[in-house]
Amino acid sequence: MNFWIAPTGTAVQKYRFVGDGIREKNGWSFNWEYKDKIYLDHIIVEAIGENNQKDRYFIKIEKDVTQ
């Protein structure tokens, strides 16, 4: 399990690797320390299965403006 960050918008930029997951008894976990930086990007979760088959899932990060 790999985790990447990709910028939003129309800019053409490559994904940036932010870490890999740790296999646990009931799934995967990932700890990412991003300090006070605000991200408005996409997190890409890349699952790697048998025969090195890769599936990617995109998660959009948005700032909560209600706080």
Rank of each mutant, 00 (worst) to 15 (best):
G19C: 07
V18P: 00
K35H: 10
P7H: 08
D64Q: 09
Y39R: 04
L40V: 10
K37G: 01
I44S: 02
Q67I: 15
A11M: 11
E62Q: 06
K25E: 12
K35G: 11
A47F: 08
Y57R: 06
T8C: 11
E46C: 13
D36N: 10
E33R: 14
Q53W: 01
K63Y: 04
V12K: 14
P7R: 08
S29P: 04
R23Q: 15
I43D: 02
N26W: 10
K54S: 05
I48D: 01
I38V: 07
S29D: 12
K63G: 00
A6I: 03
L40T: 14
R23Y: 10
F17M: 07
N2C: 05
Y15T: 03
T66M: 09
V45L: 01
N51F: 06
K14W: 07
E33W: 13
F3H: 09
I43E: 02
T10F: 08
F17C: 06
E46Q: 15
K63P: 00
V18F: 05
D36Q: 09
F58V: 10
D20K: 10
V45C: 01
F58P: 00
G21H: 02
K35N: 13
R16A: 09
I22S: 04
D20W: 04
I5Y: 05
G9I: 06
R23I: 13
N31S: 14
L40E: 14
K25D: 12
N2E: 12
I61C: 15
W4F: 15
E62L: 06
K60A: 14
V65H: 07
V12N: 15
E62H: 05
Y34W: 09
E62P: 00
W4K: 02
G49Q: 13
G27M: 04
V65R: 06
I38W: 01
I44V: 09
I5L: 11
R23K: 14
I61K: 05
N52T: 10
D55F: 03
N51D: 10
I22F: 02
N31Q: 09
Q13C: 09
F3E: 08
I5V: 15
I48C: 03
K60E: 11
I22K: 08
Y57V: 11
G19Q: 07
K25G: 07
F30V: 04
I61L: 15
E33V: 11
N26M: 12
D41C: 03
E46F: 03
N51C: 03
R16W: 01
V18H: 04
G19W: 08
R56V: 01
A6G: 07
K37D: 03
P7L: 07
M1C: 05
M1G: 05
W32V: 01
P7Q: 14
K35D: 11
R23F: 11
V18C: 07
Q13D: 11
D41A: 02
G9F: 08
I44E: 01
H42F: 07
R56K: 13
M1K: 07
N26C: 04
I38G: 00
N2D: 14
D41S: 04
I48N: 01
D64W: 06
H42R: 12
F58D: 03
K63A: 10
A47Y: 12
D41L: 02
V45T: 03
N51H: 08
T66P: 00
F30H: 12
G27K: 04
E62A: 04
W32G: 00
K60G: 05
K35T: 09
I5C: 05
K25F: 05
D36M: 08
K63C: 04
T8Y: 00
E50A: 12
F3V: 13
Q67M: 11
Q13T: 15
D41M: 03
W4N: 02
N51Q: 05
